[in-house]
């Protein structure tokens, strides 16, 4: 028995700011989103614009939003994603739309280029360069920009933010023994927004290659701290947050904020007082968590 689904495609003419939806019925059985798009272009509307290449999930061309979340069109089966018989296709978020499902990807490539994702080395071939396995994970990245689309920080369009894919590239080079970037790389990352990530982990969630992008960013941050970097609000936030957990087995909101803001906390005083009056601020010298001993042991075992 065949299932028919309604394909809803958001379309936009080049140069227009407004978009419109086009609906079409397709047979869904065994078909991917890309199969359906190709069929649409070949039999219904040859002007329909979308990007696609390898149809095997390895070239990264065809990322778009399927029922609201970023995916690869070629490896997404209609039957698996349809909701009440409908599949809505839209261009990626956080990009300007060029035409229909095609986005202007230049800013994405530029943002990645900013972290200089090439081997910093003039040594040439090194026989003994064993590369640690954690590098491997990052090299799976196909630069499809699904993470870029779902990134909450990217949504506010900060300047100097390489974005999740950029951090993945950087992580791979920082761990690469052949690379002599070391601290310089981490410094560069600080200017490219290492401390701006708001760890929503949306990137890890949508990555079609299952790369732990959020984890990579966290790891880069601890490496930056270990290298004596992170002398900014982001770095201090991590330090004071950890300090609270190590000492008391739980985070302390007051000291985390105070530590992060430093002397600038005087600007927060009016808000702080108003909150304190309404009992919204926990006591700075509050009780320890029941498991605080265990937590301290854990920190000792991790040598921190």
């Amino acid at each position: 028995m065949s299932t028919t689904i309604t394909l809803v495609i958001r379309r936009q003419k080049p140069g227009d700011s407004g978009s419109f939806f086009m609906e079409h019925q397709v047979e869904a059985d065994g078909k991917t989103v890309l199969d359906a798009l190709k069929e649409m272009r070949d039999t219904v509307d040859p002007s329909l614009a979308f990007r696609a290449q390898c149809k095997s999930g390895i070239c990264g061309s065809c990322a778009l939003r399927v029922n609201g979340s970023a995916r690869l069109a070629c490896s997404t089966f209609l039957s698996a994603v349809q909701i009440e018989g409908r599949v809505v296709l839209e261009p990626l978020l956080n990009f300007a739309v060029e035409e229909d499902l095609v986005v202007q990807d230049r800013p994405f490539w530029k943002a990645i280029e900013a972290i200089k994702p090439w081997l910093w080395s003039d040594k040439g071939y090194e026989h003994e360069a064993v590369v640690p396995p954690q590098v491997k994970n990052g090299t799976d990245c196909i630069l499809c920009a699904a993470c870029y689309s779902e990134c909450e920080v990217q949504a506010v369009k900060p300047s100097g933010y390489t974005g999740p894919a950029g951090f993945v590239q950087a992580h791979r080079f920082v761990a690469d023994k052949r690379d002599h970037g070391g601290k310089e790389r981490l410094k560069l990352l600080e200017t490219e927004g290492l401390w701006s990530c708001a760890h929503s982990y949306n990137c890890s969630e949508v990555c079609p290659k299952d790369i732990d992008i959020g984890g990579a960013i966290a790891d880069l941050r601890s490496q930056a701290l270990a290298a004596g970097l992170g002398r900014n609000a982001g770095g201090r936030h991590v330090a004071w947050f950890t300090r609270g957990v190590r000492r008391n087995g739980k985070m302390n909101e007051f000291w985390t904020l105070a530590g992060t803001r430093g002397w600038r906390i005087i600007f927060d005083l009016p808000t702080g007082l108003a909150m304190a009056i309404r009992g919204k601020i926990p006591w700075p010298w509050g009780k320890k968590a029941k498991s605080s001993r265990e937590v301290r042991r854990y920190f000792r075992s991790k040598n921190q």
Binding site: L119, G124, Y125, E126, E128, V131, R172, R178
Partner: peptide, 17 residues
């Protein structure tokens, strides 16, 4: 060797080759 020096991550044996 040129590609390796250009940054390609070839898998390695334990001795580094």
């Amino acid at each position: 060797r040129e590609l390796d020096a250009a940054g390609v991550l070839f898998d390695r044996f334990d001795d580094g080759s």
